[in-house]
Structure formats: C-alpha cells, structure tokens
Design a protein around this nucleic acid. Structure first.
Length: 562
RNA sequence: AACCCCGUGGUGUAAUUGGUAACACAACUGAUUUUGGUUCAGUCAUUCAAGGUUCGAGUCCUUGCGGGGUUGCCA
C-alpha cells in the first residue's frame, strides 16, 4: 500500500560517508541500528534518529542494508517492559520495520562478561575498591590530571578472583567496580580508567535476577554494535568524546567486526521540551494527562494529537543531518503537518462557539433544502455531501460583530455574508439578554444567491454554519504550544514557562451530523478553524471528543492584532 | 580555564568537492478565492572577522572572535 519511508536523493555528511564506504568496497552494505534505552517514551528527537537509521536502510535496500532495533538495557534500576512495548509501537507507527532484527544489549551479557575477563587477563582492567566519591576525586578535573587508584596494580589473578566474587554477589552496590586501565592523566576524561562494570542488585526486565553486575554504556554499546555487525553506529554529539573509548575497546578486544561511530547533532525545536527527565516530571506532577497527552512531544502524544506520521518524516527530512547545534523553528513541523492534512483531511462544518441565527424570510418553518458541500477541494475523488438548511442555524460567535473594525468582512448589522455552500444573508436585528449579551441574530436571505454572486454588490466573506436541527454536540479540545518560552530547556524550571492555556476545553460545540460516524483513523478539517481528529482515549459514541491537531493559518488574526 | 566539535539570510539545510551562493520555513507586498485556508507572483545573505595561497575561495592555510559539548558506578 504505502511504500517504505525513505529520503531518496537526500544527502548529508553521514550518507556521504556510507556511500563512499560502499563504493570503496569497505562494506558491501550498511547495517545501522536504533538503540533506545527502555526507560521512557520516544519523542520527536528520537524520530530524527529513527528516520536517519531506518531511512538509510530503506534507501540502500538493494544492497541488503538493514537497521536493527536494539534496546540498550544495561541499567536495570530504570528500565521497564512497558517502555519496550511503547517504543516498538511508535517505530511501527512511523512506518519503519526492523524485521527479525530485534535485539537487547542484555542478550550479550555473558559475552560482555567474558570480554571483561579477557581484559583482566591482559592486565588492562582491574577491580577498584574506591567508592564513587573517591573515584571522582582521583579522576582529577578538566584542567588537572587524575591520579592512580591504590588498587590499580593488583595482579590479574587477584582481579579475576574479585571480579568473580562481584558476579557471585559477595559485595554490595557500590563496594567495588571493574575499571579499564588506560591513562589517569589522559586529556580526555573518558579515558581516565572508566568504570566498565558496576554492582546493581536490581531485578532486570529481561534477565531477572541472574546478574548483579552490569556493564556500563561505554563497555556495552560498541561491543554490541560489533556483535550485530553494525557498520555505522550513529549517535548524537554528546558521545563524541566517548569515541576514543569506543575505539579503544574495539581495538583491544577479539571482536570480529569494527563498527564506526559517527555523531550528529540533536534535534532542538522551539517551544518544545525533549528532555526525558523533564517529560517524566510533567507526567508525574500531573501537568499533563500521561505520556500520550496531546501536549507532550512524545510520539504517542503527537499521534493522539493527530499528527500524521508522514508529516514527522517530512519534518525530519527538512531538518537535515549536521554537526551544527542549532534550533529548529517548530513552525517547520507545523507546516509539514498542515501540508499533509490539507491533502487528506475531509472538510466538515463545525461551530465551536455557537450563536443562534434565524432566517426570518425562510418560506416555511421546518422546510428543508439540501446544500451541496465539497468533501475535500484538494481531492476530487472524495466527492460531495448534502447538508440540510431549514432556516435556523448556529454560526460562530466570532463571525459576528456589532461594532466591527475597519477590515472586518464577516457579519455585522446591515452587512451581508454568505453561508458557506448556501445563500447570502443580511443581519437585520440583534437580540440580547438582560445583561446585554447577544443571544440571537435575525437575518434575511437572498434566494437569488445560491451558486451565484448577487448583482451589484460584493459579499466578501463566507462563514460556516450548522443547522440547529441537524447538529450534534461534542467536546472539542483546543491545543496550543505547550511552552511559552522559545527555549524551555534554557529556563531554570520548565514549570515557569509551561503554557497553562495550551489546552482549552470547549463543551457546547455544534457539529454537522455526518461527524457522528467519525472513526479514530480519520482526519478532518473543520472549515476555517483547523484540523481535528477524534480523541483515541476519551471519545465514545455517547460523548464525542475531538482534538485540534493544529489551527489553520489565520491571516485575519494577524491583521487584527496589529 | 583544559580537551573536543561547530560557525552560510530571521531559522534550518544546499552548493557538481576551488568556478554565477540554491531550497524550505518564517516575515512582508500583491493577485486569485463561496475556507481571511489552499494556490500563484514578488521582496529579504556577497558565507563570523582579519590576513594569506590562487586567474578565481563559502570551500584550502594562519590567527583571532563567537557558540556548543565534556569533570555519573546515566545513556
């Protein structure tokens, strides 16, 4: 049905390197991997990495390229199965497929342990009794070299004995660690005898209680890459200074293939938070409804909000891959979403904030006339539908103004507008309640204006409407940007710039009745208002709930503001 | 301050690898429009700075300036 997402003819420095490696014969094909840690939900930033790694595999499919999904589960104290499942779901939703290549770093614990023993026997790894604070002290600082641990020169035999005892559980968390013996005065701090195994007596989601020692990221990642024959290990910039260590292990260990690590810059969209820690806080502190709240930058949140997966792929493509750490205007994403939705969304008429309008010269009360409405002007296949008009309708409260400003084209006393797909009407009278609020408009229609413009005068606006008799009620949730600061990560506490108006729940909305049969996989444009979808969690036959994915561009709002 | 990385319109990416600075978003004009949507046309940078190499430099060299990363038994 749909073809595999890939960015053919896209180029960036990583794709250039891979292309060169293929044409030089260094590799017959590329094998990449997406390596999430199962300790949280995937977000927009992960989408960039997914599009890169899986995209490269799809683009080079003819050479046998593939992309693995590998869960980096080396720290049992933070990881859970719930996250594994959500991560798989999100990748599939984006349209990517790891086939049979699903792996866990924990699959390799035995091999990694053997390699640790190998380093001990080579006398380039040792068990250290220093505690975490002492190790930090001994490491030195950015400007000063570190100094050797007093336990650095234990014999291989003693190290082996202690490491075995670590595995057997004879020590407590933090009592001992295994460290690589490299150089305590190395200018790169990662090379100052990094910890490669630590004791963590916690239940692991895959291996249960089999292990109480776990390899660190540095000791596990590159070796897992090698075990899986990964050719290009793509990661973000903060791992750049880990590369010498990555290569040190690959060099010292009897591994069969030598993967190459290449770093690229993280995605940093404006008005968006992508820090896993802060996203967890938003959930735990009940600022949002959960990981899939439509205000979240998680893929599950964006999905529930109504973002089409293709729009995220388009977005990632336009962002590109470089080593430059810049910010991406969230408007680029919003544009990709509108572009996609404009093509596929079915048009509907929905009045979000209704006010009643009666056509006083309608021939007979209750007489119904059907209007032809286009389902999607961007897609001829989508056809037309019939909408009843019977003289009593709801229109949008903001489409009427008693005292309109200069360039206001909509309804006002004595002024004429078109009811979309229907007749032109003129406002003759306003009915107000005791507090002076407008509660009803009395208008007259011109029977000569169906399908043609009136002669001798210009009607400048067409407004949407729903017949009172044809309307159904629903709750509509209006979403806006989640943060008020352009860079929420630069604010001391994200709570200070959390946009409390990012969710606006409207309850008395009036929808055209065809929306009764809406399904969760459909996307709609509520004409002149924005793109909407059914809320996958809270909507039911009895109580319809729609989410606004994104508003339509609104030139009038801009004019009005200035 | 030590080490590493990066500097091309307002923003993000391109530039056949030394040969006319291109694309997208944003913004602003204007046209079209029964969605103030869509669409269409137009405006908006001599590539951080200064030197150098060259017939020719965004691309190569030097120095300076600016931004980011790094001092977890996280990944």
């Amino acid at each position: 049905m749909s073809e595999k997402p890939s960015n053919k003819n896209q180029s960036d420095f990583i794709r250039e390197i891979i292309k060169a490696d293929l044409s030089s014969g260094k590799h017959d094909s590329s094998i990449t991997r997406f390596p999430p840690e199962p300790n949280g939900y995937l977000h927009l930033g992960h989408a960039k990495s997914i599009c890169l790694n899986f995209g490269i595999a799809n683009e080079n499919e003819s050479t046998g390229a593939r992309c693995h999904l590998r869960f980096d589960d080396t720290n049992p104290s933070k990881e859970e199965t719930e996250y594994v499942e959500s991560i798989k779901k999100d990748i599939k939703w984006l349209g990517f497929d790891w086939g049979k290549h699903l792996y866990f770093a924990s699959d390799n614990f035995e091999q990694l342990y053997e390699w640790a023993v190998y380093l001990i026997n080579k006398n380039i790894a040792y068990v250290d009794d220093l505690n975490a604070d002492e190790i930090r002290e001994y490491r030195g600082s950015l400007t000063e070299p570190g100094k050797d641990s007093p336990h650095r020169n234990r014999s291989a035999d003693e190290n082996l004995k202690l490491f075995t005892q670590m595995r057997e559980g004879l020590f407590n968390d933090g009592d001992k660690v295994l460290r690589a013996k490299i150089d305590m005065s190395h200018p790169n701090i990662n090379m100052r005898d990094p910890v490669i195994y630590r004791i963590i007596k916690a239940h692991h989601h895959k291996t249960g209680d089999k292990w109480c020692i776990y390899p660190s990221y540095d000791f596990a990642h590159g070796q897992c890459d090698s075990i899986e024959s990964i050719t290009h290990s793509l990661c973000t910039l903060e791992f750049e200074q880990h590369r010498p260590l990555y290569e040190w292990f690959i060099d010292k260990l009897p591994v069969q293939t030598k993967p190459r690590q290449i770093e690229f810059s993280k995605l940093q969209p404006t008005y968006t938070l992508l820090s896993k820690r802060k996203l967890i806080e938003m959930v735990n502190d009940n600022y949002v409804d959960g990981w899939d709240d439509p205000r979240m930058s998680t893929l599950s949140g964006l999905r529930r909000r109504g973002f089409p997966p293709q729009s995220l792929i388009t977005f990632c493509k336009s962002v590109g891959i470089t080593k430059f750490t810049g910010v991406t205007d969230i408007a680029v994403l919003e544009h990709a979403v509108r572009e996609q939705l404009n093509k596929e969304a079915l048009r509907k008429m929905v009045v979000l904030d209704p006010i009643k309008l009666t056509i006083t010269n309608w021939p007979k009360k209750g007489q119904v006339e059907f209007m032809n409405a286009i389902n999607n002007p961007e897609d001829n296949e989508s056809g037309k539908r019939q909408i009843p008009l019977d003289g009593e309708v709801y229109i949008e409260r903001e489409d009427f103004m008693e005292n309109p400003p200069k360039k206001y084209h909509r309804l006002s006393p004595g002024n004429e507008v078109r009811l979309r797909y229907s007749y032109c009407i003129r406002c003759d009278e306003i009915i107000k309640d005791d507090d002076g609020n407008v509660i009803e408009l009395l208008c007259s229609y011109d029977p000569e204006t169906l399908g043609k413009n009136p002669e001798g005068r210009k009607v400048r606006a067409a407004i949407h409407w729903v017949s009172v008799s044809d309307s159904i009620g629903a709750e509509v949730r209006l979403y806006d940007r989640t943060f008020t600061a352009e860079d929420p990560s630069g604010v001391d506490d994200w709570r200070e710039c959390f946009n409390h108006e990012a969710l606006n729940v409207l309850t008395g909305c009036k929808l055209e009745s065809s929306l009764r049969d809406a399904s969760t996989d459909q996307r709609f444009q509520f004409e002149r208002k924005g793109y909407f979808c059914l809320d996958s969690k809270d909507s039911s036959k009895e109580k319809l709930v729609f989410n606004r994915t994104i508003a339509l561009r609104d030139t009038w709002a801009k004019i009005n503001k200035s």
